[in-house]
Computed example of a mutant assay.
Amino acid sequence: MLQLKNTTPFFASMAVFPNEQGIDTLYVAIKATFELGKTLAIAPKQQPIILADEYWGQPGASSVKYASEMHLTKPSTDVVLIGEASAPDQREVTQLDVAVVVAERKKVVRVFGDREWRGGLFGLRMTSPAPFRSMPLVYERAFGGIHDRTAEEKGILYEARNPVGSGFTGKRRRKDINGMPIPNLEDPADLISGHGARPHPAGFGYIAPSWEPRKSFAGTYDEAWQKKRAPYLPQDFNPRFFNMAHPDLVCDGYLRGGEPVEVLNASPRGPFKCYLPVCRLEAVVRLAGKKQAPPLNLETVLIEPNESRLSMLWRAALPCDKQALKVEQIDIGIQSLDLEAKAA
Rank of each mutant, 00 (worst) to 15 (best):
Q323R: 13
C279I: 15
F242L: 13
M312T: 14
V301F: 04
P247E: 04
E304N: 06
V261K: 09
R315V: 07
K291Y: 07
V285Q: 01
P305A: 12
I332L: 09
V327F: 01
A266D: 04
Q323N: 10
I334R: 10
L276Y: 08
Q323D: 12
C274I: 04
P239F: 03
E328V: 10
V327P: 05
P277A: 00
V263Y: 09
L302K: 04
E259Y: 06
K291G: 01
P294R: 00
L298I: 07
F237A: 08
A317R: 07
P271C: 04
A288T: 07
G333C: 12
D252S: 08
Y254M: 07
K273V: 11
R240L: 12
P268H: 07
R315D: 08
Q323K: 12
H246L: 05
A324P: 01
S336H: 14
L264M: 10
S311H: 03
K273Q: 15
V250S: 02
M312F: 10
Q292Y: 06
R315K: 15
A293I: 09
G270P: 04
Q329Y: 12
L249M: 15
N265S: 08
W314F: 07
K273F: 05
L302I: 08
A266M: 05
Y275V: 13
P239T: 02
V301C: 08
V301R: 03
P319T: 01
L296V: 10
H246S: 11
L313R: 13
K290M: 05
D248T: 05
P305M: 12
P239H: 02
Q329S: 14
M312D: 14
C320V: 15
L296A: 11
T300L: 15
F237Y: 11
K290P: 01
S311F: 01
R269H: 14
V261G: 01
V301G: 03
L276A: 03
Y254D: 09
L276R: 05
Y275A: 03
R315A: 02
M244P: 00
E304I: 06
D331Y: 09
S308I: 00
A288P: 08
F272Y: 11
Q329F: 10
L325Y: 11
M244Y: 05
P277D: 02
K290T: 11
L302D: 03
R256M: 03
Y254K: 07
R309I: 05
D236L: 13
L325R: 13
A283Y: 04
N306G: 14
A245G: 04
R269A: 15
D321T: 00
Y275T: 11
D331I: 08
G270W: 06
V327L: 01
D331W: 10
K291E: 15
I330F: 14
I332G: 05
P271W: 06
L276T: 02
L302A: 02
E262L: 12
L264G: 00
P294G: 03
P271G: 05
G333E: 14
L281F: 03
Y254V: 08
F237L: 11
V301H: 04
L298K: 09
G253K: 05
E282T: 10
R256N: 03
G257V: 09
I330Y: 12
